[in-house]
Amino acid sequence: MADPLVIETSDLRKRYGAAEALRGLALAVPKGSIFGFLGRNGAGKTTTIKILLGMAHASGGDARVFGLPAGSPAAGVEIRRRTGFAGEEKDLYDYMTVAEIVRFTAAFYPRWRRDLEQRYRRAFDLPADRKVKALSRGMRTKLALLLALSRGAELLVLDEPTSGLDPAASEEVLQALVSHVGSEEMTVFFSSHQIADVEQIADRIAIVDRGRTVVAGSLDDMRASYRRIQFVFAGDAPEMTFRAPGVVRTHRQGRVWSVLASGGADAIVEEARALHPVSVDVMPVALKDIFLETVAAED
């Protein structure tokens, strides 16, 4: 009983001139999930989002939203009819007022949700007659989010939805997202640098690095299987290559061997016991550490 995939990419490639932004990126976002998309700046997150919504053209590979090909102009219209988007820059029409841009956007969506629009107008405290250019960064973000949430869309694609927001505003945004998924048949796909936000509300994530997916899966599975294992030896920690699968990173310093494992911690512990460590510590790993260790260091 597989969930249909709302977003699916395979071997997605994109080059800008000589630079390869995406090198075969794979994504699988099931319906009804809140999917966190993590990666360093320049890893390819925004490029991927643009390709999914028809703002940029892939150089190779396949990208589908609702099963439709993201690269076709006609399918693109259908995709965008069912998707709410808010970009990283939260750029909106400076010269329109809040009320005007809401009316403008609503005209494109027959399934526009007046009830949600009212709710968020109140909750986000957006003054109807203020011009967009006179709004603060935080208010612009909330407006962009309101415009995305009120479309009556099945999918929300958000690039850095909480960036630049203070913790209270950020929490309001997360609450709006959570409430959306709860009550509608909706999927949320968002990229973020705020790992804490992702950990709080996402049930699935993908970490992308240099144009490729390096980690993907359910956050709960990762919490259950990722472990940091620390071995302390009597003398200097010995050289060791592990046969057991699941070793992501190892770090040797003095008497201590530190291993980040994506799974199979007990097999790794078994293997290391042959070297007679003095102590073995197995600890859970926070998403931030998984991120930092699986993403390449500065080239």
Binding site: E171, Q175, V178, S179, G182, I201, D203
Partner: peptide
């Protein structure tokens, strides 16, 4: 309820359901 609790704690409703 699943949804009210998810909204109050600001966590994923799927998590509450699970």
């Amino acid at each position: 309820g699943i949804r009210p609790l998810a909204e109050e704690l600001v966590i994923n409703p799927n998590t509450v359901a699970k």
